[in-house]
Amino acid sequence: MNDALDVALRLLVVFGVFLVLPLVIGQTEHKVMAHMQGRLGPMYAGGFHGWAQLVADGVKFAQKEDVVPAGADRRIFQLAPAVALLPYLLVLVAIPIGPGEGAVGEVVDAGLFFVLAVMGVGVLGSLMAGWASANKFSLLGGLRTAAQLLAYELPMLLAAASVAMAAGTVSLPGIVEAFEWWWLPWQIVGALVFFTAGLAELQRPPFDMPVADSEIIFGAYTEYTGLRFALFLLAEYAGIVVLCGLTTVLFLGGWQGPWGADGLGWVWTLLKTAVLAFVVIWLRVSYPRLREDQLQKLAWTTLVPLALAQIALTGIVKVAIQ
């Protein structure tokens, strides 16, 4: 019984984090993006510097009519947002934020594989939305999503494999345990490849060709309104949380830091995740969107060779130090 309570409590906490962190990142994005463009961003909702803007947005989304186009494949259309969102919730369960059993939702033996596998499923939601909307822009968005996923899944996996090789385990807490500071220069290429490929999988700018609003409206999400649309947006921001958390755990040493790895380890994890999330926003503000062919070229001619080189380097160093 105690076990069940424990599990329920952990899941509840993870669910809370899942609901709160994406909103925090969304609000940060509002503000950071605004200031990077010389604006102020939301200032009214909630009184103090518009802190409740996203809550207000949520209320607005909830009030909107939930429209399903007449020609759409109804059930798949309605199911798609859930398919897009749930995997990130599942992934969040497996990301450790501190040392020990207490700081992870659920220890998964093959955590790395679990995380990457489930993240890949999330894209199915976009594909379902793109196809079921009965809209040419949605279909184009879906196609681009699929092409992008196929291109960037490979370098992401290779980069993750490199760090798994270095640590000698595929368990996420195990990888952090094995982390040493000199892994940072050793795995830096892998980290960059992983982060870039992750950005592309999330369809974040500058890799947002599948939802390029100026040419295909909003890609696969064109026909969505109200709560279902909000769920897709939430999935994007939950994806940022997951990507930044994963990069922290895999490449930045998670809870390991100069001071107090024991008690305040989770602060380090959150801090690193927050910095990475800031970088995600920063990249969005700074760079123009990559064209479709540039996207594919970047993945196949730059990221894949870099990831392979990283694996080779990891292997050589690993053998050398043993």
Partner: peptide
């Protein structure tokens, strides 16, 4: 060039905004 782009946005962030309320 990429670094320059990042520097521009970061510099703008530290400056006073031009928004008229």
């Amino acid at each position: 060039g990429l670094a320059k782009g990042l520097a521009v946005t970061l510099r703008t962030m530290t400056r006073k905004t031009v928004t008229a309320q």
